[in-house]
Amino acid sequence: MPEAGEGRGRTPVPVRLPASREALAGLRAGDPVTLSGPVFTARDATHARLLAEVRERGGELPYGLAGQTLFYAGPTPPAAGRPAGAVGPTTAKRMDAATPELLAAGIVATIGKGPRSGEVVAACVEHGAVYFAAVGGAAALLATHVTSAEAIAYPELGTEALVRLELAEFPAFVAIDTLGADLYGSAAREWARGRQGSTDDVEEGQ
């Protein structure tokens, strides 16, 4: 399995959503990115509903989700003139059990925080999907990169409803790439081994 690098620089790669498989294949674990375009919020209860619907439909995604990005998040209500006062990533591993099936059905990218299972890494490779990590605890900042919110399904779930958010230059990192490199799996080990993690030399070499 390839190792995640230190990213190829400090300048974020702009990623337009929904992202094509080709665009996703060009990303590498460790790359800082900015995400612009639609994403769909889905967390614990949303996943249970979505998975049931996908199975009912013989493996097909509902609500036009094919080719789209899931954002593991439960926003706070609108505030300060923004669609959500705060919206940031929740812990992705709680969604791991459902993710391979949703990637097989056509979800091409997910956004969350924290490490994921080997099964999710393998599913990213198999389906050419990417897992983006956003910064947990930066939800007031991240909310300034959300321009609109539209309820799509399961309004009775409250903050766990499926909501389409429009992102504008939302900062994130590539955590699992389409080759199976896993930033969370390698970053701590490499740092602890004494690699400085500085990208100065990479940038200077370019």
């Binding site: 300060a80 006062g85 705060a86 007031a140 909310a143």
Partner: peptide
């Protein structure tokens, strides 16, 4: 994030 939350009176975390 801390500066935005305090200036706009929004939650630090969702």
């Amino acid at each position: 994030n801390a500066a935005i939350a305090s200036a706009d009176g929004v939650p630090l975390c969702q």
